Simulated scan of single mutants.
Amino acid sequence: MFILTVIFAVVTAAVFAFAGYYKVSGAEQQMDEARHLGVEWPAYRLLGGAELLGALGLLIGLWLSWLGVIAAFCLVALAAGALIVHAKAGDRLDAMRPAIGFGALALATLVLRLITV
């Protein structure tokens, strides 16, 4: 079971690190997304930083299990917040698929972390 936890933690960390990097780097597509969602650019970049920290927390959490649990929980909360923001922006389900997928991955990682603590 621990191997599965490691795999999910690493994949989830990679996905959130990738997303966070593009928010922090100021990619034009991310700036457009922030405008569409009605989120100020500095706040949107801060969310990217939170995604990067969450990814790092998942990886360090492979050695400090309590940190892995906290990081996974925070990433689930970030994904839930993203769904709320997308809904407020009037996005359809297809535009929410990345947030749904990220949230499901983070939730699975959280459950595995809790089982293997």
Results as ranks from 00 to 15, higher is better:
M1W: 07
F2M: 09
I3R: 08
L4R: 12
T5W: 08
T5C: 08
T5R: 13
I7Y: 09
I7S: 07
I7C: 09
A9C: 14
V10G: 04
V10Q: 07
V11S: 03
T12I: 07
A13L: 02
A13V: 10
A14Q: 10
A14E: 15
V15P: 00
F16I: 04
F18A: 13
F18I: 04
A19S: 13
A19C: 03
A19G: 02
A19D: 00
G20E: 01
G20L: 02
G20S: 02
Y21R: 04
Y22Q: 12
V24S: 04
V24Y: 07
S25K: 13
S25I: 03
S25G: 05
G26V: 08
A27E: 09
E28T: 05
E28M: 09
Q29C: 02
Q30K: 13
Q30A: 11
E33I: 13
E33H: 11
A34K: 06
A34H: 12
R35E: 13
L37V: 05
G38F: 05
V39I: 11
V39M: 09
E40P: 06
E40T: 12
W41R: 12
P42E: 09
A43R: 14
Y44P: 01
Y44N: 11
R45M: 12
L46T: 15
L46W: 14
L47Q: 11
L47S: 10
G48W: 01
G48M: 05
A50Y: 14
L52W: 06
G54Q: 02
G54V: 06
G54F: 00
A55S: 10
L56H: 01
L59F: 04
L59T: 10
G61N: 04
L62V: 13
L62W: 05
W63Y: 14
W63P: 06
W63G: 11
L64A: 12
S65M: 07
S65L: 13
W66N: 12
L67H: 02
L67N: 08
L67D: 06
I70A: 09
I70E: 02
A71S: 12
A72D: 02
A72W: 00
F73C: 09
V76P: 00
V76C: 04
V76R: 00
V76N: 00
A77L: 10
L78I: 13
A80S: 12
A80P: 00
A80K: 05
G81C: 13
A82M: 03
A82G: 08
A82L: 01
A82R: 00
A82N: 04
I84R: 14
H86Q: 14
H86D: 07
A87N: 12
K88M: 08
A89R: 02
G90E: 04
G90V: 04
G90Y: 03
D91G: 07
R92P: 02
R92E: 12
L93P: 03
D94Y: 09
A95C: 05
M96F: 06
P98L: 08
A99N: 03
I100M: 14
I100T: 10
I100P: 05
G101R: 12
G103W: 00
A104H: 11
A104Y: 14
L105C: 10
L105F: 09
L105K: 09
A106E: 02
A108V: 15
V111K: 06
L112V: 11
L112P: 00
L112D: 01
R113W: 14
L114I: 13
L114Y: 05
L114F: 12
L114Q: 15
I115C: 10
T116G: 11
T116F: 06
T116L: 05
V117H: 15
